Amino acid sequence: DEEIEKWIETLLKRNISLRVNGKDLEIGSEEFKEWVEKFIKEV
């Protein structure tokens, strides 16, 4: 979905790490990609 890709790009540009389930996810890491894929499937 384009919306999500733009959102991810924005996050990448800002180099933010997300806190997911109490863990810091490094943007661009494998864990982050897995989380994004799960997130996309749920939406």
Results as ranks from 00 to 15, higher is better:
K38Y: 11
K6L: 05
L12Y: 05
L18K: 01
K33L: 12
I8T: 01
R19A: 05
I27Y: 09
L11N: 00
L11E: 01
L18S: 01
D24E: 12
K38T: 08
L11D: 00
V43E: 03
K23Y: 12
K33D: 03
S29A: 05
L11S: 00
K6Y: 09
K13C: 14
I4T: 03
S17K: 12
E26W: 09
S29T: 08
L12I: 08
G28V: 04
N15T: 12
E42D: 07
E26G: 08
I27W: 07
E3S: 12
I4S: 03
D1H: 13
S17T: 11
F39P: 00
W35Y: 05
R14A: 09
W7I: 05
V20W: 07
E37R: 15
K33T: 05
E37L: 15
I27M: 05
V36M: 10
E37S: 14
N21Y: 07
E42P: 04
E37I: 15
G28F: 11
K41M: 07
W7N: 00
D24K: 13
L12M: 09
W7P: 00
V36W: 09
I4F: 10
I27G: 02
I27S: 03
N15S: 12
N21P: 02
K38V: 07
G22S: 02
L12G: 01
E31Y: 10
W7M: 06
K41R: 12
V20D: 01
E5V: 14
V43L: 14
R19P: 01
I40P: 00
F32A: 01
I27V: 10
K23R: 11
G28P: 06
G28L: 07
V20F: 06
E42Y: 15
F39D: 00
E30L: 12
R14C: 06
G22R: 02
G28I: 04
E2S: 13
D1V: 12
L11C: 09
D24H: 08
E30A: 13
G22D: 04
K33H: 10
V43H: 10
S17P: 10
V20A: 04
K13V: 08
E31H: 06
K6F: 09
S29H: 03
I8D: 00
S17D: 02
E37P: 01
E26V: 13
F32Q: 00
I16P: 04
S17I: 11
N21K: 08
V43A: 09
I40Y: 09
N15D: 03
K33G: 02
E5L: 15
L25Y: 04
E42N: 11
E42G: 10
I16V: 09
E5R: 14
K33R: 13
K23W: 09
T10Y: 14
S17L: 14
W35Q: 01
I40L: 12
F32P: 00
V43T: 07
E26F: 11
E42H: 11
L18I: 10
L12N: 03
I16R: 06
N15L: 15
K6M: 07
E5N: 12
L18Q: 00
E3A: 12
L18N: 00
V43Q: 08
I4L: 12
E37Q: 14
N15M: 15
G22W: 11
E5Y: 15
E30K: 12
K13G: 08
K6Q: 07
K38N: 06
L18Y: 01
N21D: 06
K38S: 06
G22F: 06
N15W: 15
L11T: 01
D24Y: 12
E5A: 13
N15Y: 15
I8G: 01
K13T: 05
T10S: 11
T10H: 13
I16N: 04
W7Q: 01
E31W: 09
